[in-house]
């Protein structure tokens, strides 16, 4: 039987999501997302405009936020701090992976 085929879409800066779409991805309310943005844990593409849009990468951030809120019962401020630290760890891990890739694999 022929299997159904679906296109997967990158979650990156070529995707622009509204606040409502981001809320649906995360099970967080729009107010909670605004609060995270106020603490700097969530960055809109256009913070000066009334209708915010967000990069597809932010889907990962808000999903982690939703899980952390539900599973660890964190309040918005603790959630924002945790997300900021997680981002910093992810950045450092990416740098570490990049540096490790430059190390020779075989010793002559």
């Amino acid at each position: 039987m022929e299997r159904e085929q679906t296109d997967a879409v990158w979650l990156d800066d070529r995707m622009a999501l509204s606040l409502a779409e981001l809320a649906r991805c995360s099970c967080l309310s729009e107010d909670e997302l605004r609060e995270l943005a106020a603490y700097g844990a969530l960055v809109p593409n256009n913070p000066q405009e009334a209708e915010w849009t967000f990069s597809g990468e932010m889907v990962l951030t808000v999903q982690a936020a939703g899980r952390l809120r539900d599973d660890l019962e964190l309040d918005p401020q603790a959630l924002a701090l945790t997300l900021t630290l997680i981002h910093r760890i992810r950045d450092l891990e990416a740098q570490l992976r990049g540096l490790r890739a430059q190390l020779p694999r075989r010793q002559p």
Binding site: R3, E4, D7, A8, W10, L11, R97
Partner: peptide
């Protein structure tokens, strides 16, 4: 549930994609 997902060129380790409605 089984289906095929087309992954466009340009993937790298740790990247994420979305299949809407699946």
């Amino acid at each position: 549930r089984s289906f095929k997902a087309r992954i466009p060129k340009g993937a790298t380790d740790g990247q994420r994609l979305r299949l809407r409605g699946k």
